[in-house]
Design a protein around this nucleic acid. Structure first.
Lengths: 202, 202
DNA sequence: GGAATTTGAGAACAATCGTTCTTGACCGAT
DNA sequence: ATCGGTCAAGAACGATTGTTCTCAAATTCC
């Protein structure tokens, strides 16, 4: 009963995520949101309760639709090098790739609920990478979770830098260089169907 | 001639840097600045021109007094492992350690002047690390600047994460784990007067 | 078809933002 | 001692913040 809503809630959350990812939380005003989302003030507050509520919904959606699937994809990686490359590439070009980053930088240290979400995301990524490391036979196998935390931080930091330089090449190349150093060229011991992407130093 | 100013400009900039590093740029109001700095509104605008002017001064000071000296210190490091540990430890516990981080995350992508400052800082750090890598003889020697960029990103990302977890141990341990994987234990070839800190896997 | 009910549109809210202005206190030079 | 110039103190500015309120439009149930 009553008038049906004329906006797609999913689309609104998605657009909000993109906006938050680009300008951050404080940098995005409610006016910006209602303008670009097309949703009206009243409806926005009726559905999401507050600007923060919309932000939490956008962050949760970003985690569920992009970050956690990426973690699942990493679990299936054949070796640490490919896992790192996958993580870097995927996280570099997502539609709202900067949302998790900005959430951690801007809000996590003073908003426990945001902190819980980012911790969940980073935990999943680190756990996935740690699993790949444990399955490998290189010197990285013993380092365990600590190394996984470092690699996750690397991807995070690269993404943070690439937000400015605009040179998208800085991310993948740097990640590739680090991956190449992690495990020696597995020429003598193929670890699985790694495919054509050989560890060439191009 | 005229009444002498009753506040220490250096102290004011330092306190502002600490405040900006803790709450970010948008999260720090001029009222907060006036209150904690003790400097009055009029004086603040007379000396720094604007809130942004004070921020730029604080960031410039942070670079000159902490980041660039750290880069110089890294140049003198004997091997990549120690350099990484030094960078991580130093950057983890500085008085305004989060300022460069927040500047990159919050402002660099939309403020060219801030972007120039952060690019200068990251460039110096990467150049220093790249120099250490080039001097080493491990597999990291050939990776060059790309690997340096990755390692700088790692330090940045670890710092970003440690802002929330509060567990300061997450940073150094992860950096240590990564460093241990980078260069094999140099037991057979001492690279210099590295001192007592042996590469034990504690 | 009419009452109920929910949405959409926009004005309006108090609070806070960064900034400027006015006023009086202070100090060095004349 | 007086004048010129700078500073501190705080009120006040318009603009913007996030949020709420009022009212007309639109749809479903009876």
């Amino acid at each position: 009963m009553g008038r049906p809503r004329a906006f797609d809630e999913e689309r609104a959350v998605e657009a909000a995520a993109e906006l938050f990812a680009r300008r951050g939380y404080e940098g995005t005003s409610v006016d910006d949101l209602v303008t670009t989302l097309g949703v009206h003030r009243g409806s926005l507050y009726k559905v999401f309760g507050s600007k923060r509520g919309l932000y939490l919904a956008a962050l949760r959606r970003h985690l569920d639709r992009h970050v956690l699937p990426l973690a699942d994809e990493l679990v299936g990686a054949s070796d640490p090098r490919r896992a790192l490359a996958t993580a870097s590439a995927a996280y570099d070009s997502g539609p709202a790739a900067g949302l998790l980053l900005l959430a951690q930088a801007e809000l996590a240290h003073r908003d426990p609920e945001v902190a819980a979400l980012t911790a969940e995301a980073f935990g999943a990524l680190e756990k996935a990478i740690a699993g790949v490391l444990a399955a490998s036979d290189g010197p990285a196998a013993e380092a365990g979770p600590h190394l996984a935390a470092a690699l996750t931080a690397t991807v995070l930091g690269l993404r943070l830098r690439s937000r400015t330089t605009g040179a998208a090449g800085a991310g993948p190349e740097a990640a590739h260089a680090l991956a190449a150093c992690l495990a020696p060229p597995p020429a003598d011991r193929p670890t699985g169907p790694t495919g054509p992407d050989a560890p060439t130093g191009d």
